[in-house]
């Protein structure tokens, strides 16, 4: 079980607001996160990944305590090692497609499988600036998946993909997640794209 009980101050339209989330998620489940822009969805993902620090709260992943502000425990992002697909992709301009995946994983056969999955085999030597938006987004997903994370956080990961590519990719990703028992949290604004896939939903009200 993943237990999240955090409070984080956020700058909102009406001034400073407090984002409070207290939920439990079963390990291996797929959770859809949705809600209006600026409601704190990305902040929530970053707090779980350890990229930002909540003022107060606790995050427990299985037996591992990642955050407990009362006892001063806060594991670094490097120790939590969650997969993270950033909304702006966060691809490194100095690295090629292959180098991105090699930076994340030393496992060549795993990298080859990911390349096939993302249909990027013919773009191995391309740097991000020479990829289309959809290709960049796929690379961002594959890089996050390359570390074989137990928890994968995805911030609008399919927004730049055409419906056909999205459907094929989601199918292949689901197979990998099932195979590896990955828990996945996906921020999505598209009501249909995760149909039949989601085990749990988390709605963020506007702040």
């Amino acid at each position: 079980m993943i237990t999240v009980d955090i409070e984080k101050k956020l700058k909102a339209y009406q001034g400073q607001q407090v984002l409070k989330i207290a939920r439990q998620f079963p390990l291996g489940s797929i959770i859809k996160i949705y809600g209006p822009s600026g409601a704190g969805k990305t902040t929530f993902l970053k707090a779980i990944a350890g990229l930002i620090q909540p003022e107060k709260g606790k995050i427990q992943f299985g037996d591992a305590l990642w955050l407990d502000t009362d006892s001063g425990i806060s594991l670094s992002p490097q120790k939590r090692k969650v997969g993270f697909v950033f909304q702006d992709y966060a691809l490194f301009p100095n690295m090629t497609v292959l180098e991105h995946l090699q930076y994340a994983s030393p496992n060549d056969s795993w990298i080859a499988r990911l390349m096939r999955m993302g249909k990027l085999e013919t773009f191995t030597d391309h740097k991000p600036e020479y990829l289309s938006g959809g290709q960049q987004q796929r690379l961002a997903i594959l890089r996050a998946l390359a570390i074989k994370p137990k928890l994968l956080l995805m911030d609008e990961p399919f927004s730049a993909l055409d419906p056909a590519m999205r459907s094929v990719l989601i199918k292949e990703l689901t197979a990998v997640w099932n195979e590896q028992g990955t828990t996945v949290m996906i921020v999505s604004h598209n009501p249909q794209e995760l149909d039949g896939l989601v085990d749990q939903e988390l709605y963020f009200e506007g702040l």
């Binding site: 970053k46 992002p77 490097q78 966060a90 930076y103």
Partner: peptide, 12 residues
Amino acid sequence: PKSFSDASYTLG
């Protein structure tokens, strides 16, 4: 972008 370093941290 800050996400460059964030992405690298999440990769370990």
